[in-house]
Design a protein around this nucleic acid. Sequence first.
DNA 1: ATGGTCGATTATCGA
Length: 265
Amino acid sequence: MRLATWNVNSIRSRVDRVVEWLSRAGVDVLAVQETKCRDGQFPVLPFTAAGYEVVHHGHNQWNGVAIISRVGIEDVEVGFPGMPTWGEPAAAEARAMAATCAGVRVWSLYVPNGRTLTDPHLAYKLDWLQRLREAGREWLEQDPAAQVALVGDWNVAPFDEDVWNMAKFAGSTHVSPAERAAFHAVVEAGFVDVVRPYAPGPGVFTYWDYTQLRFARREGMRIDFVLASPALAARVTGAQIDREERKGKGASDHAPVIVDLADSP
DNA sequence: ATGGTCGATTATCGA
């Protein structure tokens, strides 16, 4: 099974590109972030025409997550237990959605941005990650053999090599010790970054700012991750970041991240 | 020179 995650930065402005990519890349399950639309606005038909099912939860022009699958979708869940909210609950819920696809519990996550080191959104982000860690820890405690994927835009660059120039990020979010600790705590709870071994850094990124020719200059950040439970990590046979999709007019500012899984034993 | 570009909703805001 081929699993992928992609922050598409508006599904309505990107739908043709995403449908075309899904089929060409042979992706079975795609977790999408930043759909930037409400449920009724999601362009479902192009995906169903290509043989995919869609579940989406969106509320406003910023968040919105979806799961798109051609291997079936069951047990859909919006938000994780204990997930903190900010503003309208419906807007907060649009940051996390899970679906079980071919026995794998896939979480499409859009971690709060944090904005600046002094913004209250940073505390929200840290709390959000801590609650996710706690929920994840409990899932694995209840079932150590659970096949769970925590995928999406984490808005954290966990290591210095995950940004193009650490000096440029002094005093910024995404690289602060607190954010990195919150990310590593999820890893310590048992969820493994299964992409990094197949796409080692430095200089390997998943996001490049639209401004300042960042992509052309290879100046990006690695902030999109696939974290797998031990049982799922054991099935991984390969992974890649498809930076080709960041090229050209009409690209998202994020590249898709792909993980290949061996058949279930 | 502290900007630069996107996208959604309407001159801003968030990323």
